[in-house]
Simulated assay, not measured.
Amino acid sequence: MQKRLAFKLVFAGAALAALTACGQKEEPKAPAAATPAAAPASAAKAEGPMKVAFMYVSPANEEGWSTQHDIARRAVEAKFGDKIKVTTVENIPENADAERVLRDLAQQGNKLIFATSFGYMNSVLKVAKEFPEVKFEHATGYKTAPNVANYSARFYEARYLAGKLAGATTKTNILGYVAALPIPEVLQGINAYTLGAQSVNPNVEVRVVWTSAWYDPGKESDATKSLIGQKADVITHHTNSSAVAAACEEAKVPVISYNTSMKRAAPTMLLGGVIHIWDDFYAGRIQAVMDGTWKPQSVWGGAPEHMVALVDIAKGTPEAVVKDIDATYERMAKREFHPFTGPVVDQDGKEVIPAGKTASDSDLLTMGYLVKGVAGKLPSGS
């Protein structure tokens, strides 16, 4: 998830051809194996329970990105019991430390390693070559290898639902959005949130403050205060700490959290939480290794795969709003509704998605615009 500025152009070129309309990218064909000059290192043959490892970029006990992955880790431990032995490492930066830790995990005999941050990609690919018997799963990446797969979730689907909640709640018609970097994934979220809000409140305006960082609690808190100063009375974020939720709790402004439902940070002001759900995905990949059916696939799952959700909608939310959100989610899950269905117009009045048309995965992964209703422009150089 972290440091994904390169994602904007490179992912668009490297991953688009592999995507299918069903929400899962086609499995890439493994390149022909070259005969190495020397035999590569390999992990020690596992004995007893299958060893599985999870590597996190931030503390697992801190509400946010890593916490949600760790919730899934606990779920698979409960599911498989003594069939697996799990190791977790956290707060691992996206630099040479990641490569060192991955190598150490492979040497410990782990047969499946989940590397849960975008910036681990090059380290994963390098270490995977050294340990061809170890399977690697990389979150939010776009490169595969014979023993490297990647996976992500369609966060924009839950963002659309959150927009409906925010649009029905606001009194000032100004919504606030704290955003990290102007890459397609973040733009998908901002635009889907705006379109969802407009579906129930055409007068809504979404104001965005950019932090230029995935994890910077200080900047996130300052951005939140700036938006409150601009009369935003519902705030959400695409950043990784709980700082936005905490700042909203202090200011008594409703907040829609991201990554996890941040009840600890905003016990009284939490309006809802946009979350991703990895439990079934992780269980399926562990089972695939056990069964010998694991393949280096690329997955982009959403509502049909139950990988995203809007949860913990605040008590007191009008029943009609909740029913609308639930009904829209069910339509998404049945592939009867897509948040980016035309006509969709950008800030300059250009029709970017014609009436009756739906954005393709290629369109989504190259998104470089903000829709009408979003105030302000993209940062220069984006």
Rank of each mutant, 00 (worst) to 15 (best):
I113E: 01
V208E: 08
Q347D: 00
H338N: 11
V204K: 04
G229A: 15
A162C: 11
E305K: 05
F340V: 11
S226T: 08
V244R: 02
G48A: 02
N201L: 03
V206A: 04
D233Y: 07
Q68A: 14
V209G: 03
A18F: 15
F118A: 00
F7T: 01
Y329T: 10
P132S: 00
E137H: 12
K315A: 12
G229W: 11
W278E: 01
A78V: 03
P146W: 08
A60K: 15
E205V: 15
N240D: 15
K135E: 11
V200F: 03
A60H: 13
K295E: 10
F114Y: 13
G376I: 02
Y56F: 14
V311Q: 13
K225W: 01
W210K: 04
T172S: 10
V345R: 10
H237G: 07
V352D: 06
G176H: 08
R73E: 11
T224F: 09
Q68C: 02
R285K: 15
A162L: 12
V374Y: 01
N259W: 08
I174A: 09
T116A: 12
L365M: 12
A75R: 02
K8V: 12
P254V: 05
V57S: 10
A43M: 12
F7M: 05
E77N: 13
S261K: 03
L165M: 11
V52Q: 01
T20R: 15
N191Y: 00
Y160D: 07
N203H: 10
T140D: 07
N191C: 05
R264N: 14
V124T: 05
T260F: 09
V352L: 14
A96E: 05
K225P: 00
G48C: 02
E205K: 15
E47F: 08
N173L: 15
A41N: 02
V57W: 00
F7G: 04
E249S: 09
Q297V: 13
A246H: 06
L270Q: 13
K29D: 13
D324E: 09
N150C: 08
R285A: 01
T35E: 08
E185C: 08
R4P: 15
S212C: 13
W214C: 00
T35Q: 11
V352S: 06
T293R: 11
S242Y: 10
I235P: 13
A320H: 06
I286F: 07
K3T: 02
A149R: 05
M367K: 12
V148Y: 12
I228Y: 11
K219T: 11
F281K: 07
P296G: 00
K231Q: 15
G176Y: 04
T224E: 00
A283P: 05
A251V: 04
V86W: 05
E205D: 11
Q230I: 02
L161S: 02
I235C: 06
A72K: 06
